[in-house]
Structures are given as structure tokens and as C-alpha cells.
Amino acid sequence: MDLASIIGIVSGIGFICVTILLGSGMGLFWNLPSVMIVVGGTIAATMIAYPLSDFLSIVKVTMKVFLFKIEKTEDIIANLVEISNKARKGGLLSIESDIANTPDAYLAKALQMTVDGVKTGDIAAIMQKKMALIKKEHKTGYSLYSSMGSFAPAFGMVGTLIGLVQMLANLDDPSTIGPKMAVAMITTFYGSVMANLFFIPMATKLEGRSAEEITNMTIIYEGVVSIREGEHPRLMEDKLNVYLGAGAKPKEE
């Protein structure tokens, strides 16, 4: 459970609500047509921009914002070094028991290919393709929220324009100008809050988590290739420890 995301959303909503209550009632900031324009317009635009399968994955993507668990980089390196030492002493077949014990399917598949005697080049090609597919899947997730973050304020402005047109059409009654202007502004308020408190921060968090996962996959890739090539475990460890330096991330292709 990601407490930072939950605390951030709850505190953000709380600060906004307290600020509203200090100057007026909450009812003043509720307008159903405005909600329909911003929420409905954002959903509609997102469905136009993305395939239906990508749009329907939004529930899974959202869960990843709050429920996320990733193995520590140093633990992955330590595990690879241990496997490398075992392979160096007892041969590649000696690491077969590690395949069943690892919870990481990416690592397990790579080790299985290593034990099966698959050529290094083939192992590298398969692992790189898998990494590329995961990277593409992640990009779809965070770009989905990034797009919604740009659509919401735009539809907030659309709602404001609709409200202004309706207000200008009734200028013969000055008493309605104030209330109609307030309603027009509320739509922009909804769009800004949705974009800046939910969509854009979620996209940023998902992008960061994608980078973490790809970094770990890169470490596994380099470690397994090193094991297959029979490199000395200490040399492999030195190469992988580079990722512990300054939070290094693999280069985006």
C-alpha cells in the first residue's frame, strides 16, 4: 500500500474543502452540469485517443498507483551474485533449484534458458523483447493519465464558455449574472482539481515506478548474461552495483 499517494490525495481534498468552508458552504461549489461536462468530456476524449482495451485497463493502472511492491535493487544484485557463485562452482545445472524458488517470472525464465544451454545471444534477444513489451505496457498506463490531465482542464474551459454564453443570453436580467458567472467558473475549478490533484500526479508516479521496474529488469538481464558467459561473480557485482550509485535508470530507447 502506497501511503504517500493516499495521504497526498486525502490531504489535498482536505485542504481544498477547508478553504471552501472558510469562505462559504460546500453547496456553492456543487453543480451537476459542470461535473457532467468535465468528467464526461474527459472520458469521451480519452476513449477517442486510445483503443478500448487500453481505456478499460485504467482500473488495473489505478490500482498500481496505490498497491505497488518491488524488490529492492540491492537484494536483486545479491541474489544474482549468489547464483553466479553457485554456477561457477557447480556448473550451470547447479542453479536449477533457484528457478523454482524465485518469485520473479522474468528471472526464472532467463535462468531456465541458461540451464537449458540456450545461446547467450538468444537469451539476450528474448529478454530484451520482454523488457520492451513491459516498457510499452507501462507507457500506455502513465500516458493514459497524462492525457486525462490535459483533457480535464480543457473541458473545464468548455464548460465555462457554455456558462458564459448562457449568461450573456440573459443579460436583460442583471440579478442572474452573478450566479451564472459562478457556475461558469466552477467548471474550470473541477477541471483544474481533477488534473492537478489526480491525473497528472498519478501519471508522474506511474512513470517513476515504470523506471524502477525497468531498472530491475535491466539488472537481471545483465546479471543473467554475465552468468551465462561465465564471468567472475565479483566482476558481475561491480558492474551491477553501478545501479546503486545515483539511482541510475536505463536509457530510454
Rank of each mutant, 00 (worst) to 15 (best):
C17D: 05
D173E: 14
G223H: 15
T102L: 04
I7D: 08
G163Y: 05
Q128G: 14
R228Y: 09
L111H: 09
K60N: 11
K129F: 08
P51K: 05
I76E: 05
P250G: 11
I83N: 02
K119C: 06
G191Q: 04
V224R: 01
V65Q: 06
L67D: 06
I99M: 13
A125H: 13
E96M: 05
I13R: 00
N196T: 11
I200K: 08
T204M: 07
I134E: 10
V59M: 04
L111Y: 10
K180Q: 15
S11C: 13
E96H: 07
V59L: 09
P103V: 07
Y221A: 07
L164V: 13
E213C: 10
P201R: 04
I70Y: 08
L144E: 00
L111V: 06
L93R: 05
D75H: 14
V242L: 10
S94V: 14
P174A: 09
T188H: 01
A105K: 11
I20M: 12
K130R: 14
T160N: 04
S147D: 07
H232I: 14
L28I: 10
P51A: 03
M202K: 06
T204G: 04
A4N: 04
K129Y: 10
L244A: 03
S94K: 10
P33I: 01
P153V: 11
G14V: 01
D54N: 07
Q112D: 15
K205D: 05
S34F: 03
I37S: 00
K129E: 15
T188E: 01
T46C: 02
P153A: 10
I214A: 08
F198G: 01
K135D: 11
K180E: 11
L164M: 14
R234F: 08
I123V: 15
E252A: 14
S146I: 01
E229C: 03
E82A: 15
D75E: 13
V224W: 02
E212F: 11
L168A: 01
E212T: 08
M157R: 02
T176P: 12
E96K: 12
D98L: 00
Y190K: 08
A105L: 10
I134A: 11
E253L: 09
L67Y: 06
G208T: 07
